[in-house]
Structures are given as structure tokens and as C-alpha cells.
Design a protein around this nucleic acid. Structure first.
Lengths: 248, 248
DNA sequence: CGCCGCTTTGAGTTTCTTCAAGGTCCGTGG
DNA sequence: CCACGGACCTTGAAGAAACTCAAAGCGGCG
């Protein structure tokens, strides 16, 4: 269902950017008038593949996506999860060959924005360029935290840490509150994101539930004891650099 | 030993940037005339610490540095290694609070460049801004590859992969050739970078040596069988995005 | 109702860790 | 010149965390 220009779609991007930096009225207007092509995608579908040289970026409007790499025979590493407001392949503006793939996790609505329009925007508004740059830097900060989790946290804390992170990211764009959020991913996704197996994730989730830290059913996560969850995760939100919490 | 402006120092930065993008003469000149303060540091010394809000960036001129986080009691995760030409804290230009620390590995010479001078440079030369942005994006690509290693490669391939990466990074700035390079890090550093213990790294190195893939002594790494090493690592250099190999 | 994808559980195995003790190398000081 | 100390490397033995393989249970959707 292509759409020439849908202000509601781009307002998701504005909200995301305002969760990490300040936008002037003029900048907000310029972003809202970016040309987009809206598209609905089924779950589990590749959007961009490793080796591609895309000429557009992909803004998530609804649903979840993930970046991943495949190594060896069928071993998958999920590199990040993406929620509405994210542009998971923003790096393709300046790094032309994809070194990983991007796929939907759930049924997803995305908006494609031509590189040309984004580059033009960054030329006219250097401050918007800086904010996009900042967004990719926060992306990198999250990678660093995931590396730390995979290298130095046991499964229990690793899962807890991811839950804390996803909750705060969703909250920052107004998609979660009261320590409750949707988590539309399978245990196998979780395992591939955390460097574990689905079996071990299953057993560790049971431990988290047994300790009363979380409730997780029907794709809904409830952090019943947020403080204990962050403690188990050794979670410090600094790395998310959410300097301006978005209003709900 | 402060120095008002040392063209030799900044030529290391120019060489690094030219290994990932093209610079015009004017841009090169502007970079070479950045104000710097050169400083010699001993090994194992913090340069910037988690929580700091630096007002300058740090260019490595000689020696190695690393970024790291400490979690829990004394568990360390090394996030990246840095070699001459790198600006490991370039992200501090737009992400003001450090979410990790930066330290020397060996005796190191660094050049500090004020944020103000770098921001001014990026304002005057948007293309230089794009190249700096690109550099931080390649940084992120390397994080993704490390995540993939830690999540989905066993110790043997993980070590092999790091060796391939460091060799190519050194080669790209003219600091290595013929599958031989310096590797001035301890087995404990290696362990902390790869999410292993020093004991296990030691045993796995023995296996790599025993298989004839590498020679490693006196801080010198020789990839005796480069092709088998890359194969063991499932190494694909795409993620380094070395589009313009620097001449030696 | 039945299928398919996802979750759960069990049993046995591997990889990696922990703890502990020697060994080697090298710089420093007597 | 040699003894000493400290940092780093090496090795052994035991144990824990996580994996593999396999099967059964659950649940939502067509």
C-alpha cells in the first residue's frame, strides 16, 4: 500500500529522535515531509540481506525487526532488535555494503526513505545529521553492552539485561509503561540474540519466573520486581543515552 | 611533551581515514592543521573513564589502547583494540557521557584534539563529518562481528577471527605485512576481549600452534597458514569496509 | 479437528571455568 | 653477577554452565 507522504508514519521517527535529542520546529517539519513508501510485511521476512547495497533506509512503523548474521551452517546471531521509530539500516547511508541482514520478526509495517532524501536532509540541516549520527552511536553503545553481556554475564543475568533494555527502549517511545511491555519474540530468537540455545533459554526463563522476577506469557513481559530484575542484570541504563524521555 | 601542531602526528590520522574513504587535498590540509596536544602515556593507564564527559578526543599515535567495561566484581570485557590512527573516543563528540573506559595497553603516544576543533572541522567540511561518521559506523560493524564471535563461535575460531581482524587492520595503515604483525597483548587481555578465561585462551592457543596455523612469541604474531586461519575463523573481511587499502 | 510452530522436559555430553600450583622471563637492586 | 620479585604463561584436576539430541506437550489458526 504505497503512500506518497504520511505524516503519521513519520511522527514515529520524530518521537524516536526526540527521545535522544532536541529538534527545532523547522527540523521537525523537514523530517515530517520526507518522501516515504509505506509497506506491510509478513513476519520472518528479510528486508535487506548481507551483501546488498541498498539505496534506501527502512523506518519501522509497527512491529519488530532484527538484524542478524548467519555463520557456519545455520548458526544465527541476532545483533539487535528494532521497534517502531527505529531506522535499523541507517548505517547504509555511509557504509554501502550490508555486512548483516535485516528481517522482520513480527508482521511489520515499514516506511522506506530514499538515501537521496536523507542525504539531502542532512545537508540542509547539519544538526539533523548530527542527531542521525548520534542515533548510530547509541546503536553502537547498545552493541557494546550486548558484547559485555555475552562475554561476561551468565545466562540468567543476560536474559534479565535484555528485558530491562527492551522495556526502557519501548518506554522511551511511549510503547510501554508500568514495567509491562509486549515481547513478540520466540525463545529461539532470544537464544540467538544472547548467544545461547533455545533449550537453555527455556530453562533459565523458568528460573526467572520461579524467582518471581517476571511474568512472561502471550508475548507480554511483566517485570514483577523491576528492582530485583535490574539487580540480577547488573543493569545501568546510561548506555541507552536517553537524555530526553519522551512523554507517554 | 606538548606540541602546538605536529604534522607527523596527524598524518597517522590521514592515513587511517584514507584507508576507509577518499580525502580531497583541502580536507587533508584541514585535518593536518588540527590543534593537538601530544602526550606519552605508560602502559595500563586509563585515558578516559566510564562516566566522564570529555571535551577532547584521543588520537593514538603509537602503541595500543583498548576500550573496556567492568561488570560485577572485577570481571572485565574488552570492547575493542585500537592502533595508531584510531580515535577510539570519537563517539564522545555526540554522545557526551562515556559508557565505557579507554585505557592504554602498551606504552602509548596519543594526541588530544579538542572537541571544539573537531566540530568546527566537521562544520566547515561536511564530507569530513561524513567520513568521521563512517569511521564510527565501521567501529559498530566490528562490534557486530565481535558479538557474532562471542555468541556463535567456539574459542578456537574466536581467537583465530580476532587474529585475522587485527592483522588486516594493521596492514591497512601500513603497520603489518606478509601475514606478520606485532600483538602486544597478554593472554588475559585476549580472554577479556573474547569472553573467555586466560586459562582457556592458553590451552586454545596451544591448539592453534599445534595445528601449525600461527606462531606467537615475543609479542609477534605470524599467520603461518593464513588461508587455514581464515577458514577456522570463518573470516570474511567485508565488515571492515576497507575500501581503499592504504599503500605501505 | 488437525497441523505446525513453539515450548517444555529428560538424559548424557562437551566446552569452558575455577582453583591451585609451578614455571619462565625479565628488570631491578644488592 | 646473581638473587629477588612481579607479571605473565603453563599445566593439572575437578566442577559448573551450557549444549546436543530426542521426545512429548501445548496452543493457536485454518
Amino acid at each position: 500500500m504505497p503512500s506518497a507522504s504520511n505524516p503519521h508514519a513519520l511522527s514515529m521517527l520524530v518521537r524516536k529522535l526526540e527521545s535522544i535529542a532536541h529538534l527545532s520546529d523547522e527540523e521537525r517539519e523537514a523530517i515530517l515531509s520526507l518522501p516515504i513508501r509505506v509497506q506491510a510485511l509478513p513476519s520472518r521476512q528479510d528486508i535487506v540481506r548481507e551483501g546488498d547495497r541498498p539505496s534506501q533506509c527502512c523506518l519501522i512503523l509497527d512491529g519488530w525487526a532484527c538484524r542478524y548474521k548467519i555463520v557456519g551452517e545455520g548458526r544465527r546471531q541476532i545483533l539487535s532488535f528494532h521497534i517502531p521509530g527505529d531506522i535499523p539500516d541507517l548505517q547504509s547511508l555511509h557504509v554501502h555494503t550490508m555486512d548483516h541482514s535485516l528481517a522482520t520478526v513480527t508482521k511489520t509495517t515499514v516506511a522506506f526513505i530514499p538515501h537521496r532524501a536523507l542525504l539531502d536532509l542532512t545537508t540542509r540541516f547539519p544538526n539533523v545529521a548530527a542527531i542521525f549520527w548520534r542515533d548510530t552511536l547509541i546503536d553502537a553503545a547498545i552493541f557494546r553492552e550486548w558484547m559485555t553481556s555475552m562475554g561476561r554475564r551468565p545466562a540468567y543475568g543476560r536474559i534479565a539485561h535484555l528485558f530491562c533494555e527492551m522495556y526502557l527502549k519501548l518506554e522511551a517511545v511511549g510503547l510501554a509503561a508500568e514495567h509491562r511491555c509486549t515481547l513478540p519474540i520466540t525463545q529461539t530468537d532470544l537464544a540467538d540474540a544472547l548467544g545461547l540455545t533455545n533449550v537453555h533459554v527455556n530453562r533459565t526463563l523458568r528460573a526467572l519466573r520461579g524467582d518471581g522476577l517476571i511474568t512472561l506469557q502471550h508475548n507480554t513481559l511483566i517485570a514483577d520486581r523491576w528492582d530485583e530484575l535490574t539487580e540480577a542484570a547488573e543493569f545501568d541504563p546510561t548506555y541507552l543515552h536517553l537524555e530526553n524521555r519522551a512523554a507517554g
